[in-house]
Amino acid sequence: MLQSYLPALVFLVLGGAIGGAFTLLNGVLGPRRPNPVKNEPYECGLPSEVKRSFRFGISFYLIAMLFILFDIEVIFLYPIAVQLKAFGVFALVETLVFIFLLLVAFVFVWRRGALEWK
């Protein structure tokens, strides 16, 4: 059972190895000639005024919240989807109720303007 995951492990190792090899090889082969101007973050002509403690729009936070909500919907639907044929009408009614409830939430979110990008 668990042995069927062995190739996945090989892929993980190979992926990590080739990524690491690229970075390491580049570190060995590439030159290293830093100077004060080169070490500044990229900017178009102006002197750069970048600080680590950036602030960003609250809209991104809202999107992340909505994502968690609806991604859980998807994950809940997958087990039902696999067994839908076996359980027939019972599972279908459950799915309909579930999606209807989420639709209510979706309409609420939409009407409150959470989906408008500002």
Binding site: G15, G16, I18, G19, F22, T23, G30, N39, Y42
Partner: peptide, 23 residues
């Protein structure tokens, strides 16, 4: 080519980010 790292950066994170992508 040179792997330039700006002085505002976190070097070890910049090193592993591309590896995570490929991985």
């Amino acid at each position: 080519k040179e792997q330039a790292t700006p002085n505002t950066a976190v070097p070890w994170m910049m090193a592993i980010a591309p590896v995570i992508s490929i991985f």
